[in-house]
Design a protein around this nucleic acid. Structure first.
Length: 798
DNA sequence: GGAACTACGT
């Protein structure tokens, strides 16, 4: 197909057989398919009925006109129908249009002009499906009919359908003209269908249309959008005349591939050639840098643009905001939005959608509500694009009621609307409501897509209903929706999340045998669930799959492997993965550091931290948690203290509870209990249960009962979780030599505690007080507290 | 003829 991109003057290549014409079309008269009047009725003299109906129509009394037509059908000319259909389009009244359609008689029905007008009426009044039905029912489709249908699909953004229409059109021996060609090329570009795009290009050459700059621009754009920049450049080189659109299309192509360097070069070459960049050119470049996350350069370009007398417009700002959003800089996006408003640039629907989506990611409901009210002021709140983002915002912030209200207010719902609302119900835990809406969606004739099914399946998985998820997964086949990688990933992630690691692995293997391509999400969902001492061979199996698909170069996967191997007891494998990595991020170092600490390799961890610093990697909170633990293991209390001080002083990181916890453990392990207590008492924040628990453990280890008692008193005052109570009880009993959990399986006990049942504690307290109360008198305050707590909850039925 | 676009999976 490479040889299709040739200068216009050369001989075009042969068409693929499936696109061969049924009959040869003479090329010299491209308009020959525009029919001249073909039916006798069209030439019929204008009757009184025609005049009366047209008169009513002109007066705006269209209902009366349609009424009259109903009484005299069969006696009016097709052109009168056309006038009425135009009136329906003007009023956007599909109801009247339908009525008119029902009044079309047999003779008028045979008129291609009226049929084409009907296609246009249905499409413009919002029912593309009805338009398609009329179109499919037409016996002889001329170029006007094809143009109407292609135009309708283009306006609706149904690019694949436009491409299909083009293929059938060629099979029908109808060829495009100068009006239709750009639309078809646009569709090829937007649907990334380069093979049909090349056919269109070759036909355009064959018909001598590639001499106009507009046609060439369409061709170039098609190649650029399909990502074939080599062909785009060749088309560029073949052009005798170029305008700003030509340059912009090429610049846009490079920006979309993330190649801003080449885009910048073209920008300079354009200026060198004496052509001034337009605001479009600047916006393309700004968008390119912004999408790469390089928003400093993007903002700089915006300033330069304004210095050159081109004002930043809504597109410029939206490009910047969207770029921040895509690069995890949501707070930055909101700042830019504020700046945009200060600059008095009015946001449009796309801007609002981006900003609301940023609020949703940040879960800042208040800012979201501000933007919502702005959208109301601008009259855009009920628009489908804005509404969809709002539904997602309210769902993510936990306000399902508000999400529901927006859902109801959006009159022209699309797939995003339904899918977001269904997802919102699942996020709030309303599986039943989600299913109800899913059923309503199916019944109202909306065609679900694979994402709808994925939302349902992952929603059920998240809510712990595996059976329903699997049922839906099986139902997909019947509904002729092919599960994609994300569908399989939902099942794997769901099982892994619910602790069913064998089932997760089973689905993974099935996915593999079905030939479904896996991606990094697949691996990242599965690996952590296999990170335990008995799963080494399974980690290796998944590692193998990643290797075979070249996914081991994905940093996040390597990071996950380091973690999994460490937890599976093979720190040397973790190290091997770490050594072979081409690019390491801070998570890589943190995982390796954590692995060393887990295996008690304190000196290796301390050494690794130095390597990390030498390679210029900025440590994070997590780094210091592991590092302090390493110093604790090494018994290097004073060095640990220095590291702790450096967290805030050198690295400007506010120490978090985990760091204080590591310090308490560090003191505790070294037996420096009074120093630990002093450290706890001097903490700038209130010590939480984990801190006191660590101190308690240290006291227990060093057999200091009085300090342990102090710790336990502080602990119970904090109303710790059931799990902490359980641990505390176990340790307390061990400290005093008792047998607290006698007769109770630990797993069983934990399981019931998780369900917020206090039965176990009740039982233990009972055993504690009735059994060995004398022996444990020292822990009396603790017991009283537990006893009081146990009455606040209804025990689960046995 | 050219720019920004919301829903699922870590």
């Amino acid at each position: 197909m490479e040889n299709l991109i040739i200068p216009c003057k050369s001989r075009p290549p042969e068409l693929p057989t499936h696109l061969a014409f049924r009959q040869e079309v003479p090329l010299e008269n491209p308009n020959q398919h525009r029919p001249v009047v073909s039916l006798p009725r069209r030439n019929a003299p204008r009757s009184n009925f025609d005049s009366n109906i047209s008169h009513l129509c002109r007066k705006g009394e269209i209902h009366e006109a349609v009424e009259l037509l109903g009484r005299v059908r069969g006696k009016v000319r097709p052109s009168t129908y056309e006038g009425l259909l135009d009136a329906c389009i003007d009023r956007n009244s599909i109801g009247l249009g339908r009525k008119l359609h029902s009044l079309v008689d047999l003779v008028v029905e045979a008129d291609g002009f009226v049929q084409t007008k009907l296609v246009g009426m249905y499409a413009k009044c919002g029912s593309l499906d009805d338009a398609r039905k009329v179109f499919d029912g037409m016996r002889d489709k001329d170029l006007y009919a094809w143009s109407a249908m292609v135009g309708a699909c283009s306006r609706a953004g149904r690019w694949e359908e436009v491409v299909e229409l083009f293929v059938s059109m060629v099979r029908d021996s109808v060829l495009f003209d100068g009006f239709l060609l750009p639309k078809i090329l646009q569709a090829c570009g937007n649907s990334k269908n380069i093979s049909v795009g090349k056919v269109v290009h070759s036909l355009a050459i064959r018909r001598g249309m590639c001499t106009h700059v507009r046609v060439c621009n369409s061709v170039l754009t098609m190649y650029a959008k399909c990502g074939d920049l080599k062909s785009a450049h060749r088309a560029f080189d073949c052009m005798d005349e170029r305008d700003d659109v030509t340059w912009n299309a090429l610049i846009s192509g490079h920006c979309h591939q993330g190649n801003v360097v080449e885009a910048r070069k073209l920008f300079d070459a354009m200026r060198g050639g004496g052509l001034d960049p337009t605001s479009m050119t600047w916006n393309l470049l700004i968008s390119g840098y912004s999408q790469l996350g390089n928003w400093e350069v993007a903002v700089d370009l915006m300033r330069k643009m304004e210095d050159n007398g081109i004002a930043a417009n809504v597109f410029t700002w939206t490009c910047l905001i969207s770029g921040c959003g895509h690069n995890g800089q949501q707070a930055q996006a909101l700042d830019l939005f504020r700046m945009m408003l200060i600059a008095a640039v009015e946001p449009n629907r796309v801007t609002l959608a981006c900003v609301i989506s940023a609020c949703a990611s940040l879960q800042t409901l208040n800012r979201g509500i501000e933007v919502h009210s702005l959208a109301v002021t601008l009259g855009m709140a009920d628009h489908v694009l804005v509404g969809n983002s709002l539904i997602d915002l309210y769902a993510k912030c936990g306000d399902v009621k508000a999400a529901e209200q927006v859902f109801d207010a959006v009159s022209e719902k699309d797939l995003y609307t339904w899918n977001s609302m269904i997802g919102g119900y699942f996020q709030a835990g309303y599986s039943g409501k989600a299913h109800e809406l899913f059923t309503r969606m199916m019944e109202s004739g909306v065609e679900c897509n694979v994402i709808t099914w994925n939302v349902m399946i992952s929603g059920y998985m998240k809510n712990g209903d595996d059976d329903q998820a699997i049922n839906l997964f099986r139902r997909m086949e019947k509904e002729k929706i092919k599960p994609n990688t994300a569908t399989w990933n939902s099942l794997i992630a769901g099982y892994a999340h619910n602790g069913e690691k064998d089932k997760a692995l089973g689905v993974f293997r099935q996915m593999h045998s079905c030939g479904v391509p896996l991606n990094s999400v697949t691996i990242l969902s599965l690996l952590p669930s296999l990170a335990n001492l008995i799963s080494l061979n399974k980690v290796e199996e998944v590692h193998g799959c990643a290797l075979r698909r070249d996914l081991d170069f994905v940093t996040s996967i390597s990071n996950s492997l380091i973690d999994a191997y460490a937890k599976a007891g093979k720190i040397e494998y973790s190290l091997a993965v770490h050594e072979t990595m081409s690019s390491r991020d801070v998570i890589t170092w943190n995982s390796m550091l954590g692995g060393f600490v887990l295996h008690g390799h304190d000196r290796s961890a301390i050494k690794l931290f130095r390597v990390m610093r030498n390679q210029g990697c900025r440590p994070t909170r997590g780094t210091f948690v592991s590092l302090l633990k390493a110093y604790g293991l090494a018994g290097m209390v004073d060095d640990g203290k220095r590291v702790f001080t450096s967290i805030s002083e050198e690295h400007s990181i506010m120490p978090a509870v985990e760091h204080y916890l590591s310090m308490v453990e560090l003191y505790g392990r070294a037996g420096r209990l009074s120093e630990a207590l002093e450290f706890i008492e001097n903490m700038p924040v209130e010590p939480d249960a984990s801190i006191w628990m660590a101190f308690f453990t240290a006291c227990r280890f060093h057999k200091n009962v009085s300090l342990a008692l102090a710790a336990s008193e502080n602990l119970v005052n904090l109303e710790p979780s059931n799990g902490t109570f359980h641990d505390l009880l176990e340790q307390a009993s061990a400290l005093c030599g008792g047998t607290l959990s006698k007769g109770i399986q630990k797993d069983q006990a934990t399981q019931r505690l998780v369900g917020r049942s206090w039965t176990v504690i009740d039982h233990q307290v009972h055993e504690f007080t009735n059994g060995n109360s004398d022996q444990h008198s020292e822990l009396h305050p603790l017991l009283k507290r537990i006893d009081a707590g146990s009455r606040e909850f209804e025990p689960l039925p046995a």
